[in-house]
Computed example of a mutant assay.
Amino acid sequence: MGGISIWQLVIIAVIVILLFGTKKLRTLGSDLGSAVKGFKNAVSDEDKSKEKSEDTQASLANNSVDQKTESEAVKEKDQA
């Protein structure tokens, strides 16, 4: 009780089709699908850019550590 039966859903679907027509519903569905695809692409592009920036930051950190060790090696040579 209180739930929507299959017959009530069929009646609602028929009323919606009569009001809007199949052509308008088809274009609405395709528009909705393209919007969802665009959203997914935007989210994946954002994730890729975050990964790229994290990789860049990690490589910069590694380069600075490498530069420090090189400068320490030069100092040790100068002291010797």
Rank of each mutant, 00 (worst) to 15 (best):
M1L: 14
M1W: 07
G3W: 06
I4A: 07
S5T: 15
S5R: 07
S5M: 05
S5P: 01
Q8S: 11
Q8A: 14
L9C: 14
L9T: 06
V10P: 00
I11C: 03
I11Y: 02
I12W: 08
I12L: 10
V14S: 01
I17N: 08
I17V: 14
L18N: 02
L18E: 03
L19H: 03
F20M: 03
G21T: 01
T22K: 08
K23W: 08
K23M: 09
K24G: 01
K24I: 10
L25G: 00
L25D: 00
L28K: 02
G29A: 06
S30Q: 13
S30W: 07
S30M: 11
D31A: 14
D31Y: 10
D31M: 14
D31G: 15
L32C: 12
S34I: 10
S34C: 08
A35V: 02
A35I: 01
K37D: 11
K37E: 12
K37V: 14
G38E: 12
K40R: 13
K40S: 12
S44T: 04
D45K: 06
E46C: 06
K48V: 05
S49P: 00
S49I: 03
E51G: 06
S53G: 02
S53H: 10
S53F: 04
S53P: 00
E54P: 00
D55G: 06
D55K: 13
T56S: 10
T56W: 04
Q57E: 15
A58S: 13
S59A: 15
S59I: 05
L60W: 05
L60V: 04
A61F: 01
A61Q: 03
A61H: 03
N63P: 01
N63A: 12
N63F: 02
S64I: 07
S64L: 08
S64Q: 09
S64W: 02
S64C: 02
V65D: 10
V65I: 15
D66S: 14
Q67E: 11
K68S: 13
K68D: 11
K68G: 06
T69K: 13
T69M: 11
E70G: 05
E70N: 09
E72P: 00
E72M: 02
A73D: 05
V74C: 05
K75Y: 09
E76H: 02
K77S: 05
D78L: 15
D78K: 14
Q79P: 01
A80P: 00
